[in-house]
Design a protein around this nucleic acid. Structure first.
Lengths: 179, 179
DNA sequence: AGTCGCATGTAAGTTGTTACATGATTAC
DNA sequence: GTAATCATGTAACAACTTACATGCGACT
């Protein structure tokens, strides 16, 4: 259950509303963890009950109050505790690999692989643009940003591998499906 | 919900009991999809109700009947339908990346990264041994095994990338944590 | 006598998804 | 006026995890 921890990491950098967090989960943090706003609101409520975050309430008329969440000392402690515990190996779950393994409809898989490749390219571009903008000189990275940089590097390496895999698949299947 | 489809792919190759499937999910298919035996039994029951699989029952005294499942025509149809539908991009969820991004405890992350690297190496070895055993000559792969081969290639590429990433992380963090 | 492999499940709880629902403010 | 952005949620459902539970047969 690392959504809580992803939120803590994000709030440790900067306090935010649930809405802000949802946007962050569509961008930076979202490179490694996806979450819907519904999930985020639910989790924030639990985290507040646990004392890991505290909310500053700005009352608004006619609609629900705006709540800005900040990490508490207990939250920071929990983050340290989480950081020190070994991470479980990710349960990998790939619809695509299952489909590929079955290989029931070559033309459909070729099409799917092309779509997948385009998606990898798009994300790689995004990551590389982000790397260029935030870390133009990898030798000059400051300690506080090293984690984010290394995480981004992971994203870049993994997208490149995704593209290479798609190319290998297409190389072997394309000629067969176009007859 | 592709557990059903992973099971269909597996049963299309060979009929099996829930127990057999659970073991396959610890090995071959398990490279791309993890599932516990509890989950598998539950899903098989639903799939039988949906008519995608049929069970041959071997009654046993004193304990639950043994059920061997086989894919039905409806199951094969569903597999084709699933195969033709575009696969959703995987929601990537990495505790490790979240932790890295937070970078709260460098020594702990270095340790975690080493463990992770060893795990990648072990899996890569397993995949490469499997590739060597089943596909000694990549040029001579038969059509019916091409999907499994390409899926395995994906596993190999991804483990190699995982190792490269760990090495990059260790290269940047190791010296810092050992002072 | 005890562990391992085979074989089947139930129950309770957590997490995540999808659909639904509301309302203010700002830009075109 | 209408669409986008900001902002917060509820409800129902589906999927997955963890703990518990049983029992046979073979081997040691």
């Amino acid at each position: 259950m690392a959504l809580e921890h992803a939120i803590l990491v994000s709030l440790a950098e900067q306090a935010a509303t649930g809405y802000d967090l949802a946007r962050r989960f569509d961008a930076s943090i979202g490179y490694f963890w996806r979450a819907s706003h519904q999930q985020i609101y639910k989790t924030l409520a639990r985290m507040e009950a646990d004392g890991w975050v505290s909310a500053t309430i700005e009352p608004r008329e006619g609609t629900a109050d705006k709540k800005t969440y900040a990490i508490t000392d207990a939250g920071r402690e929990e983050l340290t505790r989480f950081s020190a515990e070994p991470s479980p190996r990710e349960a990998l779950r790939s619809d695509f690999a299952v489909k590929l393994r079955g290989l029931a409809d070559v033309a459909a898989i070729v099409e799917d692989t092309r779509r997948r490749r385009a998606d990898h390219v798009e994300r790689l571009d995004r990551y590389e643009a982000s790397a260029k903008r935030h870390y133009p000189d990898p030798a000059a990275i400051e300690e506080h940003e090293r984690g984010a940089y290394l995480a981004l590097r992971g994203g870049i390496l993994s997208e490149r591998t995704g593209i290479a895999w798609c190319d290998e698949i297409l190389g072997q299947l394309e000629t067969r499906s176009e007859r």
